[in-house]
Simulated scan of single mutants.
Amino acid sequence: MKTIQLTPLNQENFKSFGEFITLENANQFKINGGSTDRFHALSSVDTEANGGRTIVSMFRGQAFHLPFELKVMERHPLGSQTFIPLNPNAGQRYLIVVAPAECKNEVEVVDHLTAFIAQGFEGVTYAKGVWHHPLISLDEVNDFIVIDRLGPGNNCDEIPITSRLVINNP
């Protein structure tokens, strides 16, 4: 059994997998007569390949707990994918497991896995082609806004994880 250690989630540690979405240090300004704070352009979504278009969906992630055993990784070769929690609170967490887009098979994916825990209002945009585990809400059910691609072509590749890989509590 291989154990994957958790890496702190921040702009620097996540940049090779996509964009880390946080309000900290965001371009912020007042709109609507000063009654609303706009946190501007937190992430961009890449969905136009092969006639794709950007869509907004809601996902409801069922609760999982650590330790968590990985079973599959997926990627979207034609577009990026953004996850933003809808009901964040101080203790709400979800697990992010990623591997570089350049990985070509299970062995390469497993050898290059990185795991993060997002908390509260932290979101991520997986870059086009980045391997990631499907949504893993921790401790309780969590709802997400998901922004991704709709259009022609195969935009979901999966690799089953046949070796035993576990992510433990930090």
Rank of each mutant, 00 (worst) to 15 (best):
S35C: 09
D139K: 05
N32K: 06
N50W: 03
I159M: 09
T114E: 15
F144C: 06
L135Q: 07
N13A: 11
V109S: 07
E48F: 15
N32T: 06
I136W: 03
L6D: 04
K104M: 13
G34V: 05
V166E: 04
K104A: 14
H76M: 08
H40D: 15
N10D: 13
G79Q: 03
D139G: 00
A118R: 12
D157C: 01
T162W: 00
K71P: 09
F20D: 01
L113W: 06
E140F: 00
E48A: 15
E19Y: 03
L78S: 03
L42M: 12
N155S: 02
R53I: 03
H133G: 02
L165Y: 05
A49G: 05
Q62S: 11
F116C: 11
G33W: 11
V98P: 09
A41G: 10
T162V: 04
F59N: 13
N169D: 02
P8S: 12
P170G: 08
K15F: 05
P100N: 09
F39V: 02
L165N: 02
L95E: 10
D37E: 12
G151T: 01
R53Q: 07
L113D: 10
A63H: 00
L66K: 04
S57P: 04
I145S: 12
A99R: 14
V72S: 12
V146T: 15
R60M: 12
K128R: 15
P152E: 14
L113V: 07
F68I: 07
L42G: 04
R60K: 10
Q11Y: 10
G79M: 06
L9D: 02
L78M: 08
T47S: 06
I136N: 01
I55V: 09
T47W: 05
L150C: 10
T125K: 07
F144L: 12
L66A: 00
S35N: 13
F68Y: 14
P8E: 08
R149H: 08
D148S: 10
D139I: 00
N50Q: 12
T125V: 09
G129E: 02
N10L: 11
D111F: 00
C103T: 05
R75C: 13
F64A: 12
P100I: 14
L165G: 00
E24L: 04
A118S: 13
G153N: 04
G18W: 00
T162G: 06
Q5G: 02
P134Q: 10
I161H: 08
I147D: 06
V97L: 05
I96T: 09
E106Y: 04
F144G: 03
E102Y: 11
D148Q: 11
V56Y: 15
F64D: 12
L165I: 13
P170W: 02
V124E: 06
S43L: 04
R75H: 10
I136R: 02
T47Q: 04
V109H: 07
I84V: 13
A26R: 07
G129R: 09
E12I: 09
V124P: 07
P170R: 08
F68L: 11
Q11N: 15
D139S: 01
Q81S: 06
F83L: 14
T22S: 14
I136E: 02
Y126M: 08
N50S: 06
S80H: 04
Q119T: 15
G123W: 00
N89G: 10
V141W: 00
F59K: 05
G120S: 10
G51P: 08
E69Y: 01
M1Y: 03
